[in-house]
Design a binder for these strands. Structure first.
Lengths: 195, 195
DNA sequence: TATTTTTGATTGACTCATCAATCAATAAAA
DNA sequence: TTTTATTGATTGATGAGTCAATCAAAAATA
């Protein structure tokens, strides 16, 4: 079998498999065996390439975050006005694949893990900061600086909150309704405080 | 040792210990041994009274939810006007003990567990519904019905979101700031839509 | 009251399953 | 032949759940 150059292929397959398994079970307490099986390799190979379960999980989170970042950058770049940039950031947060139950479950598991793992926590803090500062940059062009801070904080909180409520799957809020709720929030506050 | 009537005492001690250990470690993946040790009894006794780890965890969540419900009922009863009732509900959600890092960590762990355990999920859904309908009842007196629905939904999401962000402990938002942000949201929308 | 019986409370020791991690062995390129 | 890819088999640790045995209070009986 050993065609040379398998390493990047296997790494990606394992990371993708990890995300799928974690999302499916809604917890980081998944076995290396299951991840490996999903990726179509032996558990030993997973250890060979990642050294430990922890490292594989870190790589998995990194991958998810990296994808989100790419989407956000592209969306902001495509938008013309500051107000459109804000809407673009909101829309990215609720994109269908991000808002899918398995992805939401994975996010939740990562947040929970952040209580224990400093590495995971740091990654999530970076994500939170990035969303906040992206929003802030555009909002500053639309209202006074300290109002912008408050609106950015509030919008970010609302996005996270809608994710959590989505995770319960009780009265699943649609993507459109989630976007509308967040947009409403921004609009109401811009009208009250801004230009 | 056997003074009769230990059962309720031990049950409570174990539930309290479970909440403390879960909060401390930020995960439901805690051992019966540790919970039992914290409660000052043997692991075997924990099994004797609760049958299984799952049952002990369920009882623990029930206890936390029950306390929250009691607080909410009292707060609403004490408030006079509908608008004051809304504020009271917000304040209860951010009460110091509820917003403490260990409690927030425990909540997060429960949400994560809800992805797997139907029992846990049901309990959390009940909590979410209760918060929503409590808010709704008061908001209906303040603005048109469908605006009330949207505001209740948004406020509940914002509260949950502020909890999540609190769990990261990066830029810890103070209790007062969290309350202010939520109140701002309600005010802005009442002004826009309501009386 | 004194003695026996019953029963709730409690635990140490054990079993059984699970899982991360290791390693020696094999197979195929280079 | 050296290096890279890959795995089956194994190990060591951990943790949930079980069980038989012990201890002492309470209830029954003499």
């Amino acid at each position: 079998m050993p065609k040379v150059g398998m390493e990047p292929v296997r790494r990606k397959a394992l990371v993708d498999a990890a995300l799928r398994v974690i999302g499916g079970q809604g917890t980081l307490a998944v076995t290396m065996s299951e991840i490996a099986r999903t990726a179509g390799v032996s558990p030993a190979l997973a250890h060979h390439y990642f050294g430990s379960k922890e490292q594989l999980l870190i790589a998995t989170i990194r991958s998810l975050l990296g994808q989100l970042r790419q989407d956000a950058v592209a969306a902001v770049k495509a938008a013309r006005t500051p107000r459109e940039k804000v809407s673009a950031l909101i829309r990215v947060s609720f994109r269908a694949d991000q808002f899918a139950p398995e992805t939401v479950a994975a996010w939740l598991a990562f947040y929970s893990e952040a209580q224990r793992s400093e590495d995971v926590r740091r990654l999530l803090v970076i994500y939170a900061r990035r969303l906040r500062s992206n929003l802030l940059a555009s909002l500053r062009a639309l209202c006074p600086a300290d109002d912008a801070e408050r609106i950015a904080e509030g919008a970010a909180a609302m996005i996270d909150g809608l994710y959590i409520r989505q995770s319960l799957k009780s009265a699943p809020i649609s993507i459109e309704a989630s976007i509308a709720l967040t947009e409403d929030y921004v609009n109401a506050h811009l009208r009250a405080n801004g230009g």
